[in-house]
Design a protein around this nucleic acid. Structure first.
Length: 513
RNA sequence: CGGGGAGUGGCGCAGCCCGGUAGCGCACCUGCUUUGGGAGCAGGGUGUCGCAGGUUCGAAUCCUGUCUCCCCGACCA
């Protein structure tokens, strides 16, 4: 029999499928589909298997590879470039809101985690603990940080004496480790990169204001840069951060209708202040505990960008964050090469000096068609095709990743592209918003709830009891995502148990990553 | 940790039942012809067959042990 893509290959992301999208037969496929490869090098369609699509898309776009230890990943240059662009914008906004960067140690004494009851309970199962170092067992084992509230609290206890030392507005860029049982690249990895902000304030009001302000920064990043609409709202008791008084999150919808908790901001009250004795003397001469906050945004957001915008051709990069905003593909035969390539080079140089992130794909070993597909897979917003006919006419073909080609004059390109990038951003956001709204349902009976939660987000009333929430999760796989801030006040009966609603409005449910 | 599957060139697989010294496709390298939507031909390199024992004249293949990975469930940015 023929060999090639057996059944296992289908499951384990052999990239070659039949052109009709059907799974090849176990044996017949084999070579048949392999012969089809030349014709069909596409991704698994999203509608067929979204999670398979995701894994193929990020690997073939060359963003990521698996690390040797389970649950770890290598972020390759193309993926890291996206993260760097996210970092740059966030870091700028953190500084604009008065924060300073600092760095706290990776290793934290295990005993620190035991000082805050909820915190220890929440994080104990996923702590990686070092018990052996320097050739011998350690007297006191230390944890690899899963988050830094405890070390920072410990340091603050020394640093903060007076109300004059407040507020503390700190941010740290770094890595954390959480021993995850079911990892997926970007979405859930054992080690991940993030930013964690930590602030300490004299009053509750000020700390709560900070909690919301920073969620606002995150929302700006998502809406204005990543073009991802979402819902901001408060987490229910069972979904909040371990050790927080309350948690607010940004819930974004992926193209399979599932929710991705894309970042969180916590009001920690005086929980950590009491556990770590962070006290200050106030103006009224009283000794008081500070109020703290923390807020985090991780490389998970890279997964959000992929899953919120991508289509069957691959990624679609939001242009304000795209590592490459425009790719120039010269098209030539041997005898026209000398004519086309220099023109493409000078066009690239002009676009670069207009402040755009441009790449000239002058590889000789690939055909233009191959390059078109590859850059579409990588999600580059705009492509400029430049061939001999164009050079002669002083034009170029401008192709958008959202569809459509047009012939444009070479002279005006440097001023045309920035405007196009802005309209691309708006169109991408609009597209995501329409998708989100088309997949969000207001529901009042449990049967409809069960049906709709398979298609997207559901807004419904809930009693607010943990046990009831748990039942819903078991029965539908859906969890409470948040109590959205912009949801109008209303009253009604709990979708499942019929008791009076506990939040004064409908809350958001969805299956989540 | 419970249930299922798999470890063979970079990737995906065949070979194993019935032991005889490893093969296919893709990728990669070289050359020529190509290049406006995934190019063609010719030549070439690539393996401690997951690891450790055992059986045997001989093990990818049979036996024992062990490790790892993937999928499904309970935790999470």
């Amino acid at each position: 029999m023929l060999d090639g893509c057996g059944e296992k290959a289908i499951r384990q992301r052999c990239f070659y499928r039949r052109a009709d999208g059907k799974l090849p037969l176990k044996q017949g496929c084999s070579r048949v589909s392999c012969l089809d490869m030349a014709k069909d090098k596409g991704l698994t369609p999203q509608a067929q298997d979204f999670s398979e699509w995701y894994l193929e898309a990020i690997q073939r776009a060359d963003m990521v590879d698996y690390g040797p230890v389970r649950g770890t990943m290598v972020i390759k240059p193309y993926g890291f470039a996206l993260w760097e662009n996210i970092q740059r914008e966030l870091d700028r906004m953190f500084k604009e809101t008065g924060h300073q960067n600092a760095y706290f140690p990776l290793f934290i004494p295990v005993s620190f985690f035991q000082k805050e009851a909820e915190h220890v309970e929440g994080f104990a199962p996923e702590l990686a603990i070092v018990t052996h170092a320097g050739g011998q067992d350690l007297e006191e084992p230390f944890a690899v940080r899963p988050t830094s509230e405890t070390v920072i609290g410990h340091m603050w206890a020394n640093w903060i004496k007076s109300y004059r030392d407040l507020p503390q507005l700190l941010n740290q860029w770094g890595n954390v480790v959480r021993w995850e049982l079911r990892p997926r690249p970007f979405l859930r990895t054992t080690e991940f990169l993030w930013q964690e902000g930590h602030t300490a304030h004299a009053t509750q009001e000020e700390a709560e204001e900070e909690t919301h302000r920073m969620m606002g920064v995150y929302a700006t990043l998502f809406r204005e840069f990543a073009a991802i609409p979402g819902w901001e709202g408060k987490k229910t008791e069972s979904e909040k951060f371990a050790g927080a008084v309350y948690t607010i999150s940004y819930e974004a919808m992926m193209r399979d209708g599932k929710s991705l908790q894309s970042c969180t901001s916590h009001y920690l009250g005086q929980n950590f202040a009491k556990a770590f004795e962070i006290k200050f003397q106030d103006k009224d001469l009283e000794a008081k505990h500070v109020h703290t906050t923390s807020w985090g945004f991780s490389t998970r957001s890279v997964g959000a960008v992929v899953m919120a915008h991508g289509d069957d051709k691959g990624l679609i990069m939001p242009p304000r964050l795209a590592p490459i905003q425009i790719v120039v593909v010269p098209i030539y035969k041997q005898d026209t090469r000398e004519q086309v390539v220099p023109a493409a080079e000078s066009l690239t140089a002009r676009l670069k000096s207009a402040g755009l992130r441009v790449h000239l794909d002058d590889r000789d070993q690939h055909s233009p068609g191959f390059k078109f597909n590859e850059w579409e897979l990588k999600g580059v917003p705009y492509r400029i095709e430049l061939g001999p006919r164009d050079v002669e006419a002083g034009t170029a073909v401008l192709a958008s990743r959202l569809g459509g080609k047009e012939t444009v004059g070479l002279d005006g390109l440097s001023s045309l592209i920035p405007a196009r990038i802005e309209s691309f951003h708006r169109a991408l956001y609009q597209r995501a918003l329409e998708f989100r709204d088309a997949h969000t349902f207001v529901v009042d009976d449990y049967q409809a709830f069960q049906a709709k939660v398979e298609e997207g987000f559901v807004k419904a009333f809930h009693c607010g009891e943990k046990e009831c929430e748990k039942q819903i999760k078991e029965e539908t796989k859906a969890t409470t995502r948040c109590v959205p801030f912009d949801e109008p006040e209303a009253s009604g009966k709990c979708i499942r148990c019929g008791k009076p609603n506990g939040y004064g409005r409908r809350i958001l449910f969805a299956r989540a990553y």
